[in-house]
């Protein structure tokens, strides 16, 4: 079947396709299906995606924690070589775990430390918020105040950074707003806002992978099992509780 193009060349081409396009290729013929769903190919593909800087392979998604009983929130990233983005209103989490798909276990990466830290000054109201950055990664003396913002809304907490650089902010009343730091302007996103419900939104980064789709290969433990119909998310969410999706089974891409 593949005598026309050597298999290693075909695999090389496949690893360069975005996940969505690659999944469609499973319909081309049976041998392509078995190549694409082969576990060793899946990890090759995922590794390739993760080594491409600033491509669109890394997505952010927002999810809503539906069990607010948990006392502390843990933020983490899927890859310990990457900068760790963190938006937390008071203290930096002391323990950070990632779930390694390779090792099928949680791994503590607290030693990596944080890169960004957001905190508010004074009261949790219309006060200024400061964003600090660890300029020299890993060196705690290099913490520098990056900017001070005043959102103009009553702020509950910062949820995270959007791909366009905007801040995602949870305002009082559960409304999510997007804050453009350059223009110093905020936009209501029309998400959330359920009265009497204190939304626990979280923002995580993920890379689409073939590995989670279908019934085989990798199982997701502890985290998001049904990613609202995406091919699957590979991410190191520290959340061990069930998460409720935004809307009916939908992940909001931000």
């Amino acid at each position: 079947m593949l005598d026309y193009l050597p298999q290693e060349v075909l695999i090389d081409v496949f690893t360069r396709l975005p996940t969505k396009n690659l999944l469609r290729c499973t319909c081309i013929c049976k041998s392509w299906h078995s190549l694409i769903t082969n576990p060793s190919f899946i990890s090759t593909h995922l590794n390739r995606l993760q080594t491409i800087p600033h491509n669109n392979a890394h997505h952010l998604f927002l999810f809503l924690n539906s069990s607010p009983s948990r006392k502390e929130e843990i933020y983490s990233r899927r890859c310990d070589n990457n900068a760790l983005y963190c938006a937390q209103d008071d203290v930096a989490p002391s323990e950070i775990d990632v779930y390694s798909m390779k090792g099928r276990r949680w791994r503590n990466i607290s030693h990596v430390g944080l890169r960004y830290w957001v905190h508010h000054t004074g009261h949790r109201s219309e006060e200024d918020w400061c964003i600090w950055v660890m300029k020299e990664y890993g060196l705690s003396e290099s913490w520098t105040k990056l900017l001070v913002i005043n959102v103009g809304h009553s702020v509950e907490r910062l949820v995270g950074f959007r791909k366009n650089g905007d801040l995602l902010i949870l305002a009082d009343g559960g409304q999510l707003i997007s804050y453009d730091t350059e223009a110093a302007s905020s936009t209501k996103l029309g998400i959330g806002g359920t009265i009497g419900y204190r939304c626990l939104f979280k923002l995580e980064s993920y890379t689409e992978s073939v590995g989670f789709s279908g019934s085989q290969v990798h199982g997701v433990q502890n985290g998001v099992e049904d990613c609202g119909g995406t091919g699957g998310a590979y991410y190191g969410a520290g959340a061990t509780e069930r998460v409720g999706m935004l809307g009916p089974g939908a992940v909001q891409s931000v």
Partner: peptide
């Protein structure tokens, strides 16, 4: 097969 990955289509 298509139904398996319907989101991709």
């Amino acid at each position: 097969v298509r139904a398996e990955h319907d989101w991709a289509f």
